[in-house]
Design a protein around this nucleic acid. Structure first.
Lengths: 226, 226
DNA sequence: GGAGAACCGTACCGTACGGTACGCAAATTT
DNA sequence: AAATTTGCGTACCGTACGGTACGGTTCTCC
């Protein structure tokens, strides 16, 4: 069992004990296998060989358990902040490709898909606490990491843009396309779509094509004319 | 027993009766307001001023109701197949922008979001019937429409590509970016992101930038060789 | 006007789930 | 060794939901 203790971003990570970690792992497996409907306290207790009472003692109630699962899973997906020091053009492109590949891997992962399905399925116009949590613990970190990378590339003169968030979102769209929602809806990817390395490379090519500031290619004008 | 109104004329609209339509409308409103948890048969009967028995008579069971809701909602979002006849370059671009704007409007619509949340929330690795249905009745039609439009543009020499599906997915990514999943998770768009007209225009600009094949820009050679 | 279908409202049933209580065994402490 | 803690397993409770049954009312058609 993976009993590593991880404390990062000292933002109140409760640092679960070994037993609790095992329970969370069991909960994730249950969720992956059967979706939200399969994640019942009784089922979890059976799967994890613990008592329902312990579950409620550790996580208060079902919402607490779900929140703990989100935090737990988010903590496992570590995001190395590559791209701090100065780098060459090719290294920059390589960092982008690595980011793209990692992103595709994460989003297509079964556990990530299950957690997103859970958060989305329980979300509504009013109540979207789990959704906020997923966005905060997952999406936001990705954006920060990519934002820093992009910013570094800009400061080095490899790319040019006006709005960093917009540039990031464009990169994101080029990488992910419509894959995420399709996977969330249960579709299986075609053979060509599963080649994440190729997709990452192509996406970065296109991104550089749009935002690259090398040749006489026009400087990504903003089409203010609308 | 099955001599009810439900005649599926091939792919055509199932043509529910007036009463059933009202019930489906009520079901959608219920779903939009409170998510899946709010969509109970008792609640629906109360909202629609009908009896539970009638609901089960018309839609068999809950799954039948959900399927009917998907078909019903998909039928309301009719996609005009614009772009058949020959058109000029500007008309082509205009069609693309219109498509992009429509797409953003649809995806950001409350009803669409609620239906997608429902389909995603009930999906899992094994069972994703609703998801399939949404993909088939919604996403697929969008792809067909856009595919035809793109193909028309290519045959007229405005754009060039090798793989139409890939070109469409790129266009999709440029338009939607990460907006859809973020909305599904309950996030509200920033002020700048809500300007769909501007976003559509920019997305099409970028798409033409990548795939445009006119003389002035130089034929963007796609870097398909990877 | 009468027979019959459609249908509303409500009561009802079985089940499944969230959450609690308790008995008992093993581990830990004193 | 006694006392305390921890936690497993099970039984239990209340509720809410899917689905069914039934009486009464309106509408339709002959």
């Amino acid at each position: 069992m993976d009993t590593q203790v991880r404390d990062e971003t000292g933002e109140g990570t409760p640092r679960w004990g070994e037993r609790q970690t095992a329970v969370l792992e069991a909960a994730l497996s249950l969720l992956v296998e059967g979706g939200e409907r399969a994640l019942t306290t009784a089922g979890l207790a059976r799967r994890a060989n613990c008592s329902k009472e312990s579950i409620y003692k550790w996580f208060d109630d079902r919402d607490g358990l779900l929140a703990a699962m989100v935090a737990f899973q988010a903590g496992k997906v570590r995001a190395p902040s590559a791209g701090e020091r100065p780098m060459g053009r090719e290294a920059f492109r390589g960092n982008l490709v690595t980011f793209a590949h990692d992103l595709l891997d994460v989003l297509a992962g079964e556990v990530s898909l299950a957690m997103n399905r859970l958060a989305i399925g329980t979300a509504s116009r009013e109540d979207a606490r789990l959704g906020r949590l997923v966005l905060e613990r997952g999406r936001r970190l990705i954006g920060i990491r990519a934002g820093a990378l992009i910013e570094a590339g800009r400061s080095q003169g490899f790319i040019a843009y006006e709005n960093r968030d917009d540039a990031f979102r464009t990169l994101y769209g080029l990488i992910v396309q419509d894959m995420h929602v399709r996977l969330l809806l249960g579709e299986t990817l075609g053979a060509d779509e599963r080649d994440f390395a190729r997709r990452a490379s192509k996406a970065v090519d296109r991104f550089m094509h749009l935002y690259g500031s090398d040749a006489a290619r026009g400087q990504t004008e903003e089409t203010e004319g609308n």
